[in-house]
Computed example of a mutant assay.
Amino acid sequence: MQFLTHSSSARLPTQYGDFDLHVFQDQRTDVEHIALTCGDITRSQNPLVRVHSECLTGDVFASTRCDCGEQLHHAQRLIQEHGHGLVLYLKNHEGRGIGLSNKMRAYALQDQGLDTVEANEALGLPVDSRSYEAASEMLSFFEIASVRLLTNNLGKKSALEALGITVHQQVPLLTEPTLENLKYLQTKSTKLGHLIPDLMG
């Protein structure tokens, strides 16, 4: 059963190029998810797709504790260079689904030496509670069943495939590690199975 409704669209010029921004409303929760589209995606075979989890600290405030904002903007650049594709921006995914307040509690524990997985566990919270049904529905709206997925996260690839989306290719979305996010990226690689070549040695 579909639960998203396409509510509005408009052109969105960005520093990376022009996109069309589409708003989808979840009829169960009133949460609004976003699809940024570039080019004629309806005629595109296996378009580049970034399924991006909301990260206020990284996406808006340019936090260096994570690589989320850098991944988002890198995806926008790649899609523009390719000429067509989508960024699916999923709300309610903050902190891998634990919410902003809990994410700040986890940050405080990370400042005491825990990694991102250990911090969530110490708070009695799931390591990752995200779901991707909204991404699947937005792709269905645009009649897209097969994608080239911009991700390092094998779990995200598996989740989309379980929802009936064919991942024709997994395209790495790598950023330059910093002193602030190195441990975070190492944890992604060693404990969460992300494919980050420079950290997999």
Score class of each variant (00 low, 15 high):
Gln186Ile: 15
Leu90Pro: 04
Ser101Thr: 15
Gln45Ser: 11
Val87His: 00
Glu94Ala: 02
Ser101Tyr: 15
Gly85Glu: 00
Phe19Trp: 05
Gln186Met: 13
Glu81Thr: 09
Gln27His: 14
His194Pro: 14
Gly124Ile: 09
Ala106Asp: 15
Ala106Glu: 15
Leu125Met: 12
Ser7Ile: 15
Glu81Trp: 04
Ile98Ala: 03
Glu94His: 04
Phe24Ile: 09
Glu54Ile: 09
Leu56Ser: 08
Pro172Ile: 03
His74Ser: 15
Glu161Gln: 14
Cys55Ile: 11
Thr116Ala: 04
Ser101Glu: 14
Pro47Asp: 00
Val171Cys: 03
Gly95Lys: 01
Ile144Cys: 01
Ser129Glu: 10
Leu123Ile: 11
Ala35Arg: 00
Val23Leu: 15
Thr42Ser: 09
Val147Arg: 04
Leu48Ile: 00
Gly113Thr: 06
Pro197Leu: 06
Ile165Asp: 01
Phe61Ser: 11
Leu21Val: 15
Thr166Gln: 12
His6Glu: 13
Val127Thr: 11
Cys55Tyr: 07
Glu143Asn: 07
Glu180Cys: 01
Ser140Gly: 06
Glu133Arg: 13
His82Ile: 01
Gln2Pro: 00
Leu12Thr: 13
Leu163His: 04
Val60Ile: 15
Leu88Val: 13
Gly95Phe: 02
Pro13Val: 10
Leu86Tyr: 01
Asn92Gly: 03
Val60Arg: 09
Gln2Arg: 15
Ile196Asn: 12
Leu185Asn: 09
Thr57Asn: 05
Ile79Asp: 03
Ser140Ala: 12
Gly58Cys: 11
Leu88Ala: 12
Leu12Cys: 14
Val49Leu: 00
Arg11Tyr: 01
Pro13Ala: 12
Ile165Gln: 02
Tyr16Asp: 11
Val167Met: 07
Gly85Ile: 00
Ala35Trp: 02
Glu54Leu: 07
Ser158Ile: 06
Gly113Tyr: 06
Ala135Lys: 01
Asp115Ile: 11
Ser53Leu: 05
Gly193Leu: 05
His84Asp: 10
Arg65Lys: 06
Leu173Gly: 11
Asn46Met: 01
Leu100Phe: 15
